[in-house]
């Protein structure tokens, strides 16, 4: 959990501390850590989301703002805690309920159908942005040190592949990963 210290405070362009904490906790259930392989936390998906949402239109920003509020309202109702404070098991249960679009019905919480739809939309949006933040070019703020690409064996931004590399069974993890910045650097060097 990123602590609410000065170092993280200056990092967020758009998100508030609570929003960052909550969204980060959701991302970490989509691509969890703890198995020795990079997840959403190690690839800094939350950085990607913060920067992306900052540049986005009002509808999307509202979806994050209202989604975080609704999610924490729901978990407070159910367990008396914010989403980020729940155990992993409870977090997953909450997300499963949202995905099944049944959170409102089963809790009987005084929320309208808009809230029901809002949480489903919010989770779908965080899912999209988590995938993007895991596998984007690092220039967007996620996929830190290309850890997301490393995880799945994607060599990233390449100029091309040769016949040997294109043979069935070739281990793509033997190809050095490149980012767009690496390509730019190569061209600058070629120009010198």
């Amino acid at each position: 959990m990123p602590a609410a210290n000065e170092a993280t405070k200056v990092r967020w362009v758009f998100l508030t501390e609570t929003e960052a904490e909550t969204v980060d906790a959701v991302c970490a259930r989509i691509f969890p850590s703890g198995d020795g392989k990079p997840g959403a936390r190690e690839t800094k998906v939350i950085n990607y989301i913060d920067r992306t949402v900052a540049d986005e239109d009002e509808a999307l920003r509202r979806c994050y703002r209202d989604g975080v509020t609704a999610l924490n309202a729901l978990t407070s109702e159910l367990y008396g805690q914010r989403f980020a404070e729940l155990s992993d098991e409870r977090k997953d249960q909450v997300l499963e309920r949202i995905e099944a679009n049944s959170a409102v019905e089963s809790t009987g919480a005084p929320q309208g159908p808009e809230d029901e739809g809002l949480l489903a939309t919010f989770f779908a949006l965080v899912w999209e942005h988590t995938i993007q933040g895991m596998f984007c070019d690092p220039q967007y703020g996620g996929n830190h040190e290309a850890l997301g690409w490393q995880l799945v064996g994607f060599p990233g931004a390449q100029w091309g592949y040769n016949a040997e590399q294109m043979r069935p069974g070739f281990d793509s993890k033997t190809i050095p990963i490149k980012t767009l910045e690496d390509l730019r650097r190569e061209l600058r060097r070629a120009d010198d």
């Binding site: 989509i30 969890p32 988590t130 995938i131």
Partner: peptide, 28 residues
């Protein structure tokens, strides 16, 4: 990878450890 994550086997949960394992094992 981003496009690939949008086409997953039906019935599989699209998030969590099982998803992470499946995707990192099978994308290639």
């Amino acid at each position: 990878p981003i496009e690939a994550a949008h086409n997953l086997p039906p019935g599989m949960r699209r998030w969590g450890q099982g998803f992470k394992d499946w995707f990192s094992e099978n994308y290639r």
